[in-house]
């Protein structure tokens, strides 16, 4: 399989007012479509940081990060996140003032899809994540964590990209919902050929992944391939 994402000696330094922190140190790895990748590690190991770089939320301080051969630094990262990569978060980060349906429609509307069509497609995606119709008009604050995360996945699918990045997607869920989410992620990878990259310190999630990388003190190593 062709390499979707390739990181070569990627380093990232957090600079705050008071200190500099090297969150990533010469990380090299690659990611392919159709696979679920898990990046494990303790809190503060740099895995969320690496995920954010993969999402184009920032650029590496050193090294290169390529998306299908194109250096991320030279890309329109907004367009990248809009059309090709989606992120889901531990805290879900849905728009609190938009309904479930509107949250899922949002990325499509950004892509100038007509509202009607966006609604139809959103319904489709919500079905795919097994969300009951009764919840479509509810605000995120009125549904459970598991349901919110499924909406987040549906939103990610609605963006229509090839890459799904998940930062501790099951961190706030019970085991039942956790499994549901893991299954959805695997489905996205194996059936829809997404490159799914999950940052987690959950053993069960890592076990479901095709490839497991381990992050320790900013350095990445292969745990299982």
């Amino acid at each position: 399989m062709e390499k979707m994402i390739e990181a070569v000696n990627v380093s990232y330094i957090y600079q705050t007012k008071y200190q500099k922190t090297k969150a990533l140190s010469e990380v090299s790895c690659s990611f392919e479509r159709g696979k679920v990748y898990a990046i494990t590690g303790k809190s503060g190991s740099g895995k969320s940081t690496f995920l954010s770089l993969l999402a184009g939320l920032d650029v590496p301080t050193e090294g290169t990060l390529s998306i299908e051969g194109q250096d991320i630094r030279k890309m329109d990262r907004d367009a990248y996140r809009l059309n090709r990569a989606s992120v889901i978060y531990q805290a879900f980060h849905l728009f609190p003032l938009l309904t479930v349906m509107e949250n899922v429609m949002f990325p499509m509307e950004l892509q100038h899809v007509a509202r009607k069509e966006a609604k139809v497609r959103a319904q489709e995606y919500l079905k795919q994540v097994d969300l009951p119709e009764t919840l479509y008009k509810k605000m995120p604050g009125m549904i459970s964590g598991g349901e919110q995360q499924r909406v987040a996945i549906a939103r990610a699918m609605a963006a229509g990209g090839e890459i799904l990045l998940a930062d501790e997607p099951t961190g706030n869920l019970d085991s039942q919902n956790e499994q549901v989410i893991v299954d959805l992620l695997c489905k996205l990878a194996h059936e829809k050929k997404y490159a799914v990259i999950v940052v987690t310190h959950n053993e069960a999630v890592a076990a479901a992944a095709d490839v497991v990388y381990g992050m320790k003190d900013g350095e990445l190593s292969v745990v299982r391939e």
Partner: peptide, 16 residues
């Protein structure tokens, strides 16, 4: 701020 971050995360441009 959070809203902006989410929107940027979803790929909205700065202008948007």
């Amino acid at each position: 701020k959070k809203r902006t971050a989410i929107e940027r995360g979803l790929g909205m441009t700065k202008g948007q």
